[in-house]
Every structure is written in structure tokens, then in C-alpha cells.
Amino acid sequence: MIRRFGETPQAGRTYTRRVGVYALLPRGRSLLLTCQTEPGPDLQLPGGGIDPGESPITALHREVFEETGWLIASPRRIGAFRRFTYMPEYDLWAEKLCHIYRARPIQRMGPPSEPFHEAIWMDTADAVQLLGNDGDRHFAGLHEQRL
């Protein structure tokens, strides 16, 4: 069973399952994160949905690049969680199934190409406190324990 974080699903509400991939991107004691500035600032692990016909690893590379401008190497799946949330950019109530990978950020190619995203390096201990959802904070905390 996959652990759930966040709000309990609301009875009678229909949720659309959205499968996504997200990355812990450590360098020393810091993590590379993305801040989504619209609809309101939200600090996140870089990542997002897997497009139809796309493999999880291809989606991870694409999403990290779009949201941070960085290329990554050696992704390794470390776990998964699910959460139920409203996604205003899609006007959708979603059951997000989030697969978490650890990868190495290897080269910054430029700014994020995804609108309203900023790449941010942050100390892991701070990220554990400031990431915008419980699942992201949980996996950042597991990484912090390894430091």
C-alpha cells in the first residue's frame, strides 16, 4: 500500500488519478527545488505528470529540465506517496500518485522553461520545513537523515 499524505479524500467528490515523477536533487547539504510562483508561491520537489506514452524516467528528465533548467543523471526510484488535492492550473480534483527519485544535478542549461517556476538551491534542513506538501517534506527528511 502506498502511504497517503495530506488531506483525506472528500466523500462524494470525484478525483482523477494523476501519476507523476519528482526528484530529490542533492548537492552537498543543499537540494535543488522549484518555486512555483503562480497561483501563489509553492516550494516543490521538481517534477510533474507523466505524459501518455512517456516513460517515468523520460518524464523525470523533462520535468526537472522544464522546472529548473538543469540536466540530471543517475535517477534511482526511492519511494512513492499519494495525496488528494485540487489542481487550480487544470481546474481538477486529483489523486496524485507521486513517484520519488534521487538523481544528480549535473549541469544548468539556463533558466526554467516552464512559466512561473524558479530554480532554488536550499539547505536540506530548511527544505524539510518549507516544502509545500507533506510528502515532499517526508522524502526530503529521509534524505536529511542520510547526511
Rank of each mutant, 00 (worst) to 15 (best):
W121R: 14
P46S: 03
G110L: 13
F65M: 07
L147E: 14
Q36N: 10
A127F: 09
N133H: 14
P88C: 06
E114V: 08
Q145W: 08
A140G: 07
G132P: 03
G79M: 02
L97E: 11
E118Q: 15
P56F: 03
V19I: 08
T34Q: 15
L60G: 04
E63D: 03
A80E: 15
D136Q: 06
D123S: 12
G53R: 11
G141P: 10
G20Q: 04
M122H: 10
P88V: 05
I72N: 02
L43P: 02
T16P: 00
P88Y: 13
F81R: 01
T68I: 09
R83V: 00
S113G: 05
R27K: 14
E38V: 12
R17Q: 09
H61P: 00
E89N: 11
R146K: 15
T124D: 09
A73K: 11
P88K: 13
R18Y: 09
S113W: 14
E114H: 13
P39V: 01
I120W: 07
H99Y: 12
H61N: 02
L142Y: 05
E63H: 10
S30I: 03
D134E: 15
P75I: 06
Q107H: 14
E89K: 15
G12V: 11
G47K: 09
D134R: 15
S113E: 09
R13A: 09
S55M: 05
L142R: 15
R3P: 00
G53V: 09
R18F: 12
R17I: 02
L142I: 12
E63M: 10
G132H: 08
E66V: 05
L92Q: 12
V19R: 12
G49I: 09
F81K: 03
I50D: 02
T37P: 03
A119C: 06
E89A: 13
